[in-house]
């Protein structure tokens, strides 16, 4: 609080700079004659969907029963078969004993539907999550192989890490989708997740290797001097300590992964980015949608940062 009072003029300057930049943007868009239609955006998160009920054949209404918000309409059609329709009471359009023609509108049911942006957000979220988990497992194993004694495992893991780190993710996605996807017959979602996981795994491996190597040698020696096997020492002594040290870089990697996952939109996975593009084709609210998409990515990454910061505070009790 004290520092806030001391630095108030700097806070004011920050605010002024931001306001100035906002004003600049506003002036700039005024020049290109763009009409902002922010009111169109919310319907792409959730919308109120109308499901209109119509009779398939000619017939007659035999009964209307209203119970609170829903009304049940019973229609006897020309084959003498009875059919009941459930609709929202305030949308009722027919009365009892009315004759109906095929296609007549009896009433509607309204319900809330998830819009494309929210759906895309969800796809991005779970694709990144699954890819992170698999990437963590791959990375852990590769990282251990890289510092292990077995020469073949060491060389293979090094090759994997170097290949992945030396090629663009976009190209890897194409290779996994078009080559492995075709050869092994896996669908686009699985291919996208695989590509992301393999990509993340290489970076996680390097982080884990560095983390393990940063633990003083004395820790392994102490564990061994107590009779622990290498595996036991790894599990109980080295990895828990390494995990704590690697948490910040790992978090950074997973945050990157959320952002990198936007590239899977190129193989027609409807993640947040792809959804954004689709919405734009139907609304032409290009600026608004891209800003909103950016904000949604930011919300995802920012909440992940918060979670990690909380875990870090919890783990800090032993230092």
């Amino acid at each position: 609080m004290n520092s806030f009072r001391k630095d108030w003029c700097w806070h004011l300057l920050t605010a002024l700079v931001l306001v100035g930049m906002g004003y600049g943007l506003w002036v700039a868009t005024g020049k290109v004659d763009y009409t902002w239609r922010w009111n169109r955006v919310p319907q792409y998160f959730v919308y109120h969907n109308e499901d209109a009920k119509r009779v398939p054949y000619d017939g007659r209404v035999v009964e209307i029963e209203t119970a609170g918000d829903t009304t049940t309409v019973t229609v006897r059609d020309r084959f003498d078969e009875e059919e009941t329709y459930r609709i929202d009471s305030d949308t009722l359009r027919v009365s009892e004993n009315e004759d109906l023609f095929a296609g007549d509108h009896i009433g509607s049911v309204f319900n809330w539907q998830v819009g494309p942006l929210l759906h895309g957000l969800w796809v991005t979220l779970w694709i990144s999550f699954v890819a992170s988990i698999i990437g963590l497992v791959i990375g852990l194993m590769t990282g251990l192989c890289r510092i292990g004694r077995n020469v073949t495992l060491r060389q293979l893991s090094t090759l994997y890490v170097e290949l992945i780190r030396g090629t663009p993710l976009l190209v890897q996605i194409f290779i996994v989708y078009f080559f492995f996807g075709t050869v092994l017959n896996i669908d686009r979602i699985a291919a996208g997740i695989c590509a992301l996981a393999i990509f993340a795994g290489a970076y996680v491996a390097e982080i884990i290797r560095a983390g393990i190597q940063s633990i003083p040698r004395g820790q392994m020696e102490a564990a061994k001097s107590l009779g622990m096997t290498t595996t036991q020492a790894m599990v109980h002594i080295i990895l828990p300590q390494a995990f704590k040290r690697t948490l910040p870089p790992l978090a950074g990697q997973f945050i990157s992964l959320i952002k990198d996952s936007s590239l899977v939109s190129v193989i027609a996975i409807t993640d947040l980015t792809k959804s954004g593009r689709e919405v734009i084709t139907s609304t032409f609210a290009t600026f608004e949608i891209w800003f909103v998409v950016a904000l949604l990515y930011f919300l995802l990454t920012a909440s992940l940062s918060q979670v990690i910061a909380w875990v870090e505070r919890r783990l800090a009790i032993s230092d």
């Binding site: 003083p216 004395g218 820790q219 020696e221 102490a222 564990a223 061994k224 001097s225 107590l226 009779g227 002594i237 300590q241 032993s318 230092d319």
Partner: peptide
């Protein structure tokens, strides 16, 4: 090793 205890200069406790 479980029959042979060792104490190190740098303690090497598990932090």
């Amino acid at each position: 090793r479980r029959e042979v205890g060792m104490v190190f200069q740098q303690f090497n406790l598990f932090p």
